[in-house]
Computed example of a mutant assay.
Amino acid sequence: MLKELYLIPVAIYIFSYIPFLFKEKKVYKVFLSLIYTGFAVQTSIFFIFLSVKGLTMPVHIDRFVFFNAWILMFIVVLFGIFYKADYILLYITPLVALNLLVGFFVPHVHIKPDMLNTDRTILLTHIILILIGDSLFALAFIVSLIYIFQERKIKNKKNLKILDTNSGRGYNLELLDNINYQCLKIGFPFITLGIVMGLYLSGSLFRTFIVVKPIEIMSLITWLIYAVLLHERVAKGLRGKRAAIFSVAGFLLILFSLSFSFYLFPSFHGFE
């Protein structure tokens, strides 16, 4: 029954784009109001889950996906307010809505009992760290795409306006690049700690830290890509389009890894 609640914020997020069909001056403010309303509803559902299921909420794959969608939206709202770049909500909200729909339709599989016999605090910390890191990389992915298209439009002496925000201006490339860098700089430690805790849990479960599973190989490759990107940005001053392309490639690998782990072969990651 609780899964049906996912559809409420999805409906609000979809409805928020309808005002753009009308050429009114305050259409963008209406859009933002609806988006923040949808996020408030999503947050309320999140706390309902916490009150009903407690901290065990993320151990079911559908709630895991919902939790991921909430963290992603929370981070985007914070970045939008802090950097005065709420236009990123135009492009990230469909990804959040898609996450919620996946959470609604995905089977109600859960973590295997033997996984729950490990340290639950470390298990939940591992999940939360990975979700925060992935959400920051998702934001970096979106702003990187905006950067790439905006740069191309500038070369053609046009501004990127997929949806009219009534600003009449293009997006600031320097700001987009900075958001990309901040997401990488903040997200990388979360991903690193999350992977380390995942290896610890794997070692506790299998009595050895050397367990070669597809998800571990994919996680290591993804970590190496972002490690190289962070090194290039810090040590060699990598900026602009090349950094954006790296971010896009890294996040696409994360999507493939998550799909491989949770949706195609859930048993590889402790789900049944």
Results as ranks from 00 to 15, higher is better:
252 L>R: 13
184 L>E: 09
212 V>T: 10
249 A>W: 07
213 K>V: 08
199 L>Q: 03
264 L>P: 14
250 G>Q: 04
242 R>C: 11
171 Y>P: 06
171 Y>F: 13
199 L>I: 06
260 F>H: 13
199 L>S: 12
228 V>N: 07
263 Y>C: 09
263 Y>R: 14
207 R>E: 14
208 T>N: 04
227 A>P: 13
218 M>G: 13
194 G>D: 00
234 V>K: 11
188 F>P: 00
176 L>C: 07
171 Y>I: 05
224 L>F: 12
246 F>W: 12
225 I>R: 15
183 C>V: 02
203 G>Q: 08
217 I>N: 02
205 L>I: 05
237 G>A: 01
188 F>Q: 06
201 L>C: 01
210 I>Q: 10
221 I>K: 01
252 L>Q: 07
237 G>Q: 03
241 K>V: 10
226 Y>C: 00
214 P>Q: 05
216 E>Q: 11
260 F>I: 12
237 G>D: 06
178 N>M: 09
242 R>N: 14
199 L>T: 09
252 L>F: 10
244 A>K: 02
198 G>N: 01
220 L>M: 13
214 P>R: 00
221 I>V: 12
234 V>E: 00
177 D>E: 08
243 A>R: 04
229 L>Q: 05
239 R>E: 15
215 I>F: 14
235 A>L: 03
170 G>C: 06
230 L>V: 14
238 L>S: 10
230 L>W: 13
239 R>F: 11
228 V>K: 08
187 G>S: 02
226 Y>N: 00
183 C>P: 15
256 F>H: 03
171 Y>W: 04
224 L>K: 11
186 I>M: 07
217 I>W: 09
235 A>P: 03
201 L>G: 02
241 K>P: 10
183 C>G: 05
199 L>K: 01
178 N>P: 10
237 G>V: 04
247 S>E: 14
184 L>V: 08
255 L>Y: 05
218 M>W: 08
211 V>L: 08
169 R>W: 03
252 L>H: 06
209 F>Y: 08
238 L>G: 13
182 Q>D: 04
179 I>G: 01
258 L>H: 05
219 S>D: 04
255 L>N: 15
200 Y>H: 09
194 G>S: 01
182 Q>K: 10
213 K>I: 04
251 F>D: 12
263 Y>E: 02
250 G>F: 06
257 S>G: 14
170 G>N: 01
210 I>E: 08
227 A>Q: 05
252 L>W: 10
233 R>I: 07
178 N>E: 12
189 P>T: 11
211 V>P: 15
187 G>T: 04
241 K>T: 10
223 W>P: 00
216 E>Y: 11
176 L>F: 09
198 G>H: 00
199 L>H: 01
258 L>D: 14
200 Y>I: 04
210 I>H: 12
198 G>F: 01
245 I>P: 01
202 S>V: 13
254 I>A: 05
208 T>Q: 06
170 G>V: 02
246 F>K: 15
257 S>I: 13
213 K>H: 12
253 L>Y: 09
259 S>D: 02
180 N>C: 11
170 G>P: 00
258 L>V: 14
230 L>I: 08
226 Y>R: 09
192 T>M: 01
220 L>S: 07
206 F>E: 10
180 N>L: 13
262 F>K: 15
181 Y>D: 03
